[in-house]
């Protein structure tokens, strides 16, 4: 990450707690990361690691039962300090979201053109015909053929991939500086996913949008992310450039995750490596490494002291008392 003022988004010590009937849950535990303008950063982890909660917390989209603390600086402004009215202006105009399931985010009784037009009228004060023209341009930008015809169609008339393209078109209607994409291709087939990832690349090239990509899919990360932050049990545990992370993971959990995924480019004769045990659900932040119980490298320190998120031997940020050695090239 480039220093200081180059940052578009700076998240410091973000902590999110939920009060539930079964007691408190610590969903995000002092997560820190930053994003530069036009950068594609992937936030990676398995279910329950806190990646989606982090994404929602950025612009205050969590329910009232969530207690959020920490600093979230976006373009020089501290977001948690803003009034809801001001946050609403930022959402949609400067920070836009795309979620996994487009059908639940689109209004089924409004045409595609009407829904995109709504965004343009609301945030950019465009008139009807200008909004319609711009909506068609946006559909073209996200790779929808015959955009003028599509404007008059309803969401149910579109395929899953087309709906997700419409969602992205709406999200980028105001040329946001940050697009938060939460598992945007998880519900889609791979041939459709390839097209959506191309759309994200196009947006970056054409309007310079930075992308915070929330995903569990390491293939998607390998395809599109420049930098990767790995989360585990609410904590950020490793951060590095994508190539470096895949080639030289420093955290044993990252290593475990990479080894667990079957890779068609190299057949796993001896079986896939498994990570024993389960992800813990925590009420409070323990004075320990949260991965210690599942880690082959853990010792007394790991179980009694909380590791800091610090520069490790491979140059990655890593939260581990015993980061993995950098492999010696043959």
């Amino acid at each position: 990450m480039k220093p200081g003022s180059d940052r578009l988004l700076d998240v410091e010590e973000l902590t999110v707690r939920f009060g539930t009937e079964d007691g408190a849950v610590l969903a995000v535990d002092a997560a820190s990361f930053a994003l530069g303008p036009g950068e594609v950063l992937a936030l990676v982890g398995e279910s329950g690691c806190g990646k989606s909660v982090t994404a929602l917390a950025l612009t205050g989209l969590l329910p009232r039962s969530a207690a959020v603390s920490g600093r979230i600086t976006f373009a020089g402004r501290n977001l948690p300090g803003l009034a809801e009215r001001e946050l609403r202006r930022i959402r949609g105009r400067d920070i836009a979201y795309v979620f996994q399931e487009p059908m639940t985010s689109l209004n089924p009784v409004l045409t595609v053109g009407r829904q995109i037009g709504e965004v343009l009228r609301r945030h950019q004060g465009m008139g009807g015909s200008a909004a319609r023209r711009r909506a068609a341009e946006l559909l073209e930008l996200v790779g929808i053929p015959l955009p003028h015809r599509r404007l008059g169609e309803y969401p149910h008339q579109l395929s899953g991939g087309m709906r997700q393209r419409v969602m992205i078109a709406m999200a980028v209607a105001c040329r946001p500086r940050l697009l938060v994409a939460d598992e945007p291709t998880t519900a889609l087939d791979v041939t459709v996913q390839a097209g959506i990832l191309d759309v994200l690349r196009t947006l970056r090239a054409e309007i310079g949008t930075a992308v915070l990509l929330i995903t569990h899919d390491l293939g998607v990360v390998a395809d599109i992310a420049e930098r990767v932050v790995v989360m585990y049990a609410g904590r950020t545990i490793e951060e590095a450039h994508a190539e470096a992370l895949f080639a030289r993971p420093s955290h044993p959990y990252t290593r475990g995750l990479l080894d667990a995924v079957p890779n068609p480019a190299r057949h796993a004769d001896g079986g896939l490596r498994e990570i024993p045990g389960r992800v813990p659900v925590l009420a409070t932040s323990p004075d320990a490494c949260t991965f210690a119980d599942r880690c082959g490298h853990a010792d007394g320190v790991c179980r009694t002291r909380r590791p800091a998120f610090a520069r490790g031997p491979a140059g990655h940020l890593v939260r581990c008392w015993h980061p993995l050695a950098v492999p010696v090239p043959p």
Partner: peptide, 13 residues
């Protein structure tokens, strides 16, 4: 189909 399925390795992918 094979081409669209991303390989979990940025150097290859």
């Amino acid at each position: 189909l094979l081409s669209a399925a991303p390989i979990p390795d940025p150097a290859v992918q």
